[in-house]
Design a protein around this nucleic acid. Structure first.
Length: 447
RNA sequence: GUGGCUGUAGUUCAGCUGGUUAGAACGCCGGAUUGUGAUUCCGGAGGUCGUGGGUUCGAAUCCCAUCAGCCACCCCA
């Protein structure tokens, strides 16, 4: 047996044991619930697409990271590297049946063959939601509200939603005569928080061959401080005379105004105009957002998105503008773990039923069935091992309650209800339908 | 893709400039306690030192390659 195959996973790909999968599923379920509350419908698309659908849609960088190969029929194919390009293909192909506006969410794995790092893998999950087929700012506003509701539901603690507008940036670039260097300039500006004003100006000089006065103007916009209103007023001055720039400022003002009046007073401080963020992706054309956790800003954006008015043009002549965002599941998970905001639970059920008296299996099974019918998760231990061992197992898995019944209890019609967190145990008379017992368990679970 | 660091029991690590049967803590399993889990005591299992070559009388230790992880760049979730 020396030729056994070594069990291993590919670089950047990983297994998800229960301790990881339980919080993961909780986030996914929360995202699903919040998206649905806004009327977004689920879709899925194939992991594999014709190569021509995927290449040239993101940037040179995404083309390099694309997993590509020939299928068994010799067709050039690729694995999706995000959910937005498949969405563009999907709506271009099906919009006549879907109608507009089309609101969808899509929670699925994507693949990128890039170098790995903590929180960065080659297979990872995105939780996207987008509204297709309307240019109304309502959809942009709703995107921000969804992010707010989602992160609130996920109990991540304080967070800040940073918003900016590509039109504002493009307007300034036009005025400065740097429009053809847009990508390089925006990428440099995006790093302001990371490398500082000096680093950015150095990079602007070398990468975008910007002059000192151009750099000064760009940094002036990026470094604005004050209230949202004050910053917007200053930004407006910088782009005055540029229609796209002025429109960007107007939209930002409207969006921030709408969001702050909709949110509760404690939540409205969460939205901030942030003139330096712009998102690396080329296809954004309007509002862009990034969201950081106040207690862990250095981990980067956990929910990002924006408006893209041209994406489906690659596949159809029909005009299909869109706006949407994506929750960074794995990054958020890493952050919550680091912040100690994840409950360490290893079992999806909360009630543990030891197999104590080996002659009474069927009686245990019917008790478990009755509790499950009452909506409680119950795990019945498969082996009639020593009670101490069974309780140890229950304790490690994070069960809340153990129900202990041996020969004594069965004959007296009672049950010991043990609170595993405190160690306290009470004896409850079961009665005919176990209603007493169910109430006692429920009491502990709700405390 | 580029550069740097790391890789020894399940886990965290020790192992001096190469030298006999590679250690510890915690964890795990069994028992003390045949009806009660985070304590205590006793006992036990578990490692071809990531993998493959090379140098050497001799390699966990040195060299090369490879795989994997971490960090920075790049990019992004």
């Amino acid at each position: 047996m020396s030729d056994r195959i070594t069990p291993r996973t590919l670089k950047g790909f990983r297994d998800y044991p229960p301790a990881m999968m339980i919080p993961r599923e909780w986030i996914i379920e929360t995202a699903r619930r919040v998206y649905r509350l806004y009327g977004f419908s689920p879709i899925d698309t194939p992991a594999l697409e014709h190569l021509e659908i995927l290449i040239g849609k993101g940037s040179d960088e995404t083309d390099k990271q694309l997993y590509r190969f020939e299928d068994h029929g010799g067709r050039p194919v690729g694995m999706r590297f995000d959910l937005t390009v498949p969405l563009a293909r999907f709506v271009a192909q099906n919009i006549q049946d879907l109608g507009t506006p089309f609101k969808r969410y899509h929670i699925a794995n994507v693949w990128r063959g890039e170098n790995t790092q903590r929180g960065r893998y080659r297979e990872f999950m995105q939780c996207d939601f987008d509204t297709i087929g309307t240019t109304s700012l309502s959809a942009d506003i709703e995107m921000v509200l969804v992010i707010n509701d989602l992160l609130t539901a996920l109990d991540v603690g304080g967070f800040t939603i940073h918003v900016n507008h590509r039109g504002l940036l493009n307007g300034l670039l036009e005025k400065l005569g740097l429009a053809d260097q847009a990508t390089a300039v925006l990428r440099s500006l995006d790093k302001l928080a990371k490398i500082g004003a000096e680093g950015v100006s150095k990079e602007l000089r070398s990468a975008a061959s910007a002059t000192d006065s151009q750099i000064e103007q760009l940094l002036k916009l990026s470094s604005l401080e004050g209230s949202n209103d004050e910053m917007l007023a200053e930004a407006e001055k910088l782009v005055i005379g540029s229609p796209v720039g002025e429109r960007g400022v107007a939209q930002l003002r409207e969006l921030i105004g709408s969001v702050t009046t909709t949110l509760s007073s404690e939540a409205m401080g969460r939205i901030r105009f942030a003139p330096s963020i712009c998102r690396g992706l080329d296809y954004y054309t309007g509002i862009v957002v990034e969201t950081t956790l106040d207690d862990l800003p250095e981990i980067g954006s956990v929910a990002s998105g924006g408006r893209y008015d041209n994406l489906a043009n690659l596949f159809t002549s029909q005009e299909l503008p869109g706006v949407g965002a994506s929750l960074g599941l794995d990054r958020l998970l890493a952050a919550l773990e680091e912040l100690g905001r994840l409950e360490q639970v290893h079992t999806p059920a909360e009630v543990f039923l030891p197999f104590f008296d080996s002659d009474r299996r069927n009686e245990y099974l019917s008790l478990a069935a009755r509790l499950r019918a009452a909506g409680m998760g119950v795990e019945f231990f498969p082996d009639a091992k020593k009670l101490g061992k069974q309780l140890q197992y229950a304790n490690r898995r994070g069960f809340r309650v153990a129900l202990i019944l041996g020969n004594d209890e069965f004959t007296s019609g009672e049950c010991q209800v043990k609170n595993l967190a405190t160690g306290e145990s009470q004896t409850v008379a079961r009665g005919d339908d176990d209603a007493n017992l169910i109430a006692a368990v429920r009491c502990i679970l709700q405390s």
